[in-house]
Nucleic acid binder design. Structure first.
Length: 555
RNA sequence: GCGCCCGUAGCUCAGCUGGAUAGAGCAGCGCCCUUCUAAGGCGUUGGUCGAAGGUUCAAAUCCCUCCGGGCGUGCCA
């Protein structure tokens, strides 16, 4: 791949020595790259227009046109050269992260709670980053940090003993657990004895009581089994399912280290680490390690988990894909590690995302205010099914395609916007199949496959690059040319939407090309256009996989 | 009170390491299938970039102050 920016920079520097590389900017309105000459005006004591004009005739560049306009030095890359460059490089062979290891903590299923729309973001952002990092050559470690520790589970056992049975658990599984959970919280409001009972069961789980642990493990197995079904539908993978409970007995080792560094303080009977006094100006509330009753707290277990991951995987980066409301928690977590003198503290990243609501209401399993993911997916698949029935009734694998398209619509919708903005989940938007959507990209991919199969595949021989220099084809080529950069940028910014948006742009350009230029027109033109179609098809399939979508061949 | 995030077209959002007329999609209106998948393409309507200052040759983009919304702020996770 030719690095036009460096090439242009070198050439301009020879003529205008004070130009810096950052001054060479990409600009698509008037040209491919430009250098604004306004900064130079003061130093050179000439008007920007004159500088640009003189430089335009002095700069020598192969395959790049130079011109001056309104004080800008404009560069236009030779189209045929860029087409050639694009077709001579291979897609997905860019591996800048070879040898790196990245731990990614996402989804974090809570025991006894079915998947609702609030879990979608962490699951899908993390799952996509996992694919992206792997595609760039890194070793990704997908971690599902199970929410399997807390007094709430004592309540669940208590509720199960009062209102449930083994038989019912066998039959209804997670549905029963959710029902019990909601009922427990409701009745605990008026029945104080329930809370005491719950606490005692919670203690029994911790002390290793055989019955309590056995029951809880069953709940856990049911939850994970259910979650794995969802992950399968969403193309999500994990390498580890170690949850919070795994780290409970590893907290004391962390306390030892804290004590050795003289960081552990007792305050009102609780163990804390103070975070406001190290003089670097950043004031934070203290990190609570252990409650006054001796129970470990969230951050203590996260510290233990951080050490475990570092020791086990020797990561170069450790990402936590968790909603923005936990920003302070992670700031504290990373700060404690820094105070403990761990150089890898700076490799920890909170990949935060905005809060999700439905119809302006926050989501709460406890209050039964939920929109289950399975229901949303079913609605989407059903809609895909009916569209297929209407437009392509002879399709052989209808059910399979409807699944890919329906689920794809929901996932793509979740991954299309910048992650920091709060999201008011809209069923209508998630089920939209027109415009900037997953089905649109999948449809364009299927269209490519269809054209290629009619032609018996893309030509093996060398193509005439000049065929692809008209506006419609060239725009498509340009987007393909920088696709690897977009993937890398998505990894660096932890932002899958960079890829989903790029896919839509490629589709828009290709569909314009498809309508403007006839592909099956015979001769050298047909060969070149088929080659472009094959490139688009491959890029879309690759890109779709990075944002967790299938690429059906027909739909 | 303090801290973090967000505020761009009726709706959902790109653009934010400053650059040349602020871009898409949805919704609305009007076109294009006897030629490769119309889940598509083309055209059109729609904007004091929350407000006021400041820095700069140049601000949606950087800085300050306000306003509006979300989240958090010691014994939940």
């Amino acid at each position: 791949m030719v690095d036009y920016r460096s090439k242009i920079y070198e050439a301009v520097k020879a003529v205008l020595p004070s130009v810096e590389k950052d001054d060479v900017t990409a600009a698509d309105a008037f040209c491919d790259y430009c250098v604004p000459c306004f900064k130079l005006a003061k130093v050179m004591r000439k008007s920007p227009a004159v500088i640009a004009q003189e430089a335009a005739s002095a700069v020598k560049l192969d395959g790049v046109g130079v011109s001056a306009l309104n004080g800008y030095l404009n560069f236009t890359v030779d189209r045929e050269a860029l087409v050639k460059d694009t077709f001579e490089s291979k897609l997905g062979e860019y591996k800048p992260l070879n040898g790196k290891t990245v731990c990614i903590d996402y989804s974090s299923v809570n025991i006894a709670k079915p998947f609702h729309i609030g879990h979608l973001m962490t699951t899908v952002i993390g799952g996509s980053l996992y694919k992206i990092y792997r595609a760039l050559g890194a070793t990704a470690v997908g971690i599902n940090h199970l929410g399997d520790f807390g007094t709430q589970f004592g309540g669940l056992i208590s509720a199960f003993r009062r209102w449930g049975s083994e038989k019912e658990l066998e039959e209804r599984g997670l549905d029963l657990l959710l029902e019990l959970y909601v009922r427990y919280n409701k009745e605990a409001e008026t029945d104080a004895a329930l809370a005491d009972e719950a606490r005692s069961w919670s203690n029994k789980i911790e002390s290793g009581d055989k019955y309590a642990v056995g029951l809880f493990d069953k709940f856990k197995a049911i939850t994970i089994e259910q979650a794995k079904k969802v992950y399968l539908r969403l193309n999500i993978e994990f390498d580890s399912y170690l949850g919070e409970s795994f780290y409970v007995d590893k907290v004391s080792a962390v306390e030892k280290k804290l004590k050795a560094k003289d960081l552990l303080k007792i305050s009102d009977g609780a163990e804390i680490v103070e975070l406001d006094g190290d003089g670097d100006g950043e004031k934070m509330p203290p990190a609570l390690i252990r409650r006054s009753d001796g129970a470990s707290l969230y951050i203590a277990r996260d510290l233990a988990a951080a050490y475990y991951r570092h020791d086990t995987y020797a990561f170069d980066k450790c990402l936590y894909v968790v909603a923005s409301h936990q920003a302070l928690h992670f700031k504290q977590l990373f700060k404690v590690l820094e105070l403990m003198g761990e150089p890898w503290a700076s490799d920890m990243v909170h990949v935060s995302y905005g809060m999700v609501s439905v119809d302006g209401m926050g989501l709460s399993t406890r209050h039964g205010n939920v929109l289950f993911l399975n229901d949303v997916l079913s609605a989407a698949v059903e809609k895909a099914q009916s569209i297929i029935e209407e437009r392509n009734p002879t399709l052989e694998n209808k059910a399979e395609v409807a699944e890919s398209v329906g689920v794809g619509a929901v996932v793509f919708d979740a991954l299309y916007d910048g992650r920091l903005k709060d999201k008011n989940f809209s069923l209508a938007d998630a089920l939209n199949f027109d415009g900037e959507t997953g089905p649109y990209v999948q449809y364009t991919h299927a269209r490519c496959v269809s054209v290629l199969s009619k032609a018996g595949g893309a030509p093996k021989k060398k193509i005439d690059y000049s065929v692809l220099t008209d506006d419609a084809a060239y725009e498509t080529v340009k987007l393909l040319n920088t696709f690897d950069e977009a993937v890398y940028s998505a990894a660096v910014k932890y932002e899958p939407s960079i890829i989903s948006r790029r896919l839509v742009k490629i589709c828009q350009a290709f569909n314009r090309f498809y309508n403007a230029d006839r592909i099956m027109c015979g001769g050298a033109e047909q060969d070149a256009r088929l080659a472009l179609t094959a490139r688009v098809e491959a890029a879309l399939e690759y890109g779709l996989s990075l944002v967790l979508l299938d690429a059906p061949e027909r739909m």
